[in-house]
Design a protein around this nucleic acid. Sequence first.
DNA 1: CGCCAGGCCTGCACGC
DNA 2: TGCGTGCAGGCCTGGC
Length: 272
Amino acid sequence: MPELPEVETTRRGLAPHLQGQRVEAVIVRNRALRWPVPRDFAAKVSGRTVRAVERRGKYLLIDCGTGWIILHLGMSGSLQIVPKSVPAGKHDHVDLVLASGMVARLTDPRRFGAVLWAPDDPLRHPLLARLAPEPLGAQFDAAWLHARTRGRSAAIKTLVMDSHVVVGVGNIYASESLFHAGIHPGLAAGRLSLVRCEKLVFAIRETLAAAIEAGGSSLRNYVGAEGRPGEFQHTYFVYGRQGDLCRLCGTAIKALRHGQRSTFFCPTCQRR
DNA sequence: CGCCAGGCCTGCACGC
DNA sequence: TGCGTGCAGGCCTGGC
């Protein structure tokens, strides 16, 4: 589910409720996430006051002063702020009970998400240490994308989703960005010219920024921290639109598979 | 029943 | 030898 825009939407919704709040208690109902929630997680976090809620790629980072919570929403996760009187449901695995009387509650039916503890700089954690630049940051530019794709024969779609090339772009926004850049998803990445790298970088930034603006996309069960669904899915040009007509040229949208993931594109607007 | 689903790690065989 | 690459598999539940 959540790609960068959904994670950023969650971060923005969460931050005002968490910042400066003391975590009175931590309830772990199910440790069996993507990786087990550390046994001492509750002990590490209880009693700490949250300094900041940050994000790196699709990871949420909660600064507890004495260490950081590293949180990933996986495929089906969401993190919501609710009053602590709200009873926990079947898929509510972790609660941070706040002094304010609210809880930050992690819900994740498929349990592909993660809740980890980093005693120091979370950016040095093995999962984060080798991540590519942020797509909305200055480091991610045409020169970077061009350099990272030289000599690569894999489809550009695959590389756009590779966190060593750029972080945060998942299956939906990869298809959408390539559409906006006019690039065929199956193009061998190494054949992308610098000018087209420029277009793709621009398209990725614009697509993600617009999605954040819309509060992310809601497919199935995604909701932001305040429980509001995102609206960006109404703006899709290609994702999930196989057989529907291209909003720009009227050609039927086609589907492909790259690395077991479905890809959608307009055969007229997108060229190799 | 089988297949699909927004993520991401590991491991394998293969070809250069 | 060591990459890059495309797979399959794993972690899970739920909807069609």
